[in-house]
Write a protein that binds this DNA or RNA. Structure first.
Lengths: 227, 227
DNA sequence: GTACCTTTGTGCACCGATTCACAATCGCGC
DNA sequence: GCGCGATTGTGAATCGGTGCACAAAGGTAC
């Protein structure tokens, strides 16, 4: 288990473990068992152990994992030992909120620029930084060595902004616009669609209502006629 | 294929198809093939067909799917034929941004209340609504028949807010706080963690750098010593 | 009415991820 | 230094999801 390439699903959970571990450390815990970490992360313990085993054998049988050491290893694996300069495109509601979001800076993501295509927004101050025009994107990317871009524009502008980010040299994109964007092979994209999450909840909510109706009697006829 | 229970992965894609279909409809398309829909949604066509087959056989061989009819069916399946009143807890940056977010109302999610525990925020106007105190949550939920709650508080407050939501009668929660929350069996939870997404991008970004270094020569020694 | 073209719906093989279950291993107390 | 209780690390079974590939079926042109 000592080569590279961690399963995608595991990569998605490492940040959760990391958060839990940091909390443990703050509470003064020196070691933690897979069971306790699993509880804190909301998964089962076998998964925790298998996930952590991809990083190496850092646990001690009969004892658990050294919290501080494990934090270090997870950070290293995730690439969080360095600072990541981030550029946000779109100075609307969401762009503003993300620019001010403490959770980013706390984890080593430094918002170095907020760009927009609207002239009237340029110069507006948002927290520490001022909105710049999107035309200056390539220059900013070069100056600050930005690798990660965040798209907070309306859906219609998303693809064009993505293209400009890629042309400017950005290699990873987090897309909040409700649109599918396409990028070259070498660029990573992740998307967060706020309304999709609500739609998924609506589906299960509706399902609960339907099931309750069925269980309640009459409507069961629709599915399985009583003999 | 005519019983209930759609695979989770499919449920997650239906909103994407829906968005693409609505765009098609606006562009005047009457029918669409699985191939075209796949392209618009960024998946492959077999997946589209299989996903849609869970809703029923709504396509016509040799032709494709009727756009308007398919929109109706997807909406019905997702439970979007009705309006969903939504309550947001936490009037910080993110709470404000989400309250104003057009994407919610466009899809039938009506923000009926924004609550916070800070007295000084109560009364503050955000778009159409005014911030109310979280103590009034149960009353609001009853009055507006709220089923869905959104948590936009700091991590420390998330569990307590979730508990209050559940106690107040909310049955689905979308959690933006970077914390794992636990709720009773009958409550659905989905979480969106903004900084986790960036951490995942950081991982792949770092990996690309490592791989490039390896390919570039020297560093390959770390992994596979040249004989 | 028939032949051809297109596109759906789905059986099947495959793949990654999850979970179980247990041997291997550690620390500790005596 | 030995035995016991705790906990890891991982094979193996299983599960859900993906994608290929093709038969079934509708539309169209002549």
């Amino acid at each position: 288990m000592r080569d590279r390439a961690i399963p995608e699903a595991t990569v998605g959970r490492l940040p959760i473990y990391l958060r839990a571990l940091i909390e443990m450390a703050e509470n003064g815990a020196a070691t933690i068992s897979s069971g306790d970490l699993a509880e804190a992360a909301g998964v089962n313990s076998a998964k925790v152990r298998k996930d952590l085993s991809y990083l190496g054998s850092y646990g001690t049988r009969g004892v658990g994992y050294d919290v501080a050491y494990l934090i270090h290893q997870v950070r290293r694996e995730l690439g969080l030992t360095q600072d990541w300069p981030v550029l946000i495109a779109g100075a609307g509601n969401l762009g503003h909120a993300l620019s001010n979001y403490k959770g980013f800076s706390e984890r080593g993501f430094r918002i170095v620029a907020l760009v927009d295509n609207a002239e009237e927004k340029v110069g507006e101050r948002v927290g520490e930084i001022a909105v710049e025009h999107i035309d200056r994107l390539p220059e900013i990317v070069r100056r600050e060595d930005v690798a990660i871009g965040v798209i907070c524009t309306p859906a219609g502008a998303a693809q064009e902004v993505a293209d400009r980010m890629v042309a400017g040299g950005i290699r990873s994109i987090l897309n909040f616009a409700p649109a599918v964007i396409s990028v070259p092979e070498h660029v990573s994209v992740r998307k967060v669609d706020l309304s999709i999450e609500l739609q998924i909840l609506a589906y299960y909510e509706q399902r609960k209502a339907v099931l309750a109706a069925v269980k309640g009697g009459r409507a069961a006829l629709d599915l399985a006629p009583v003999p």
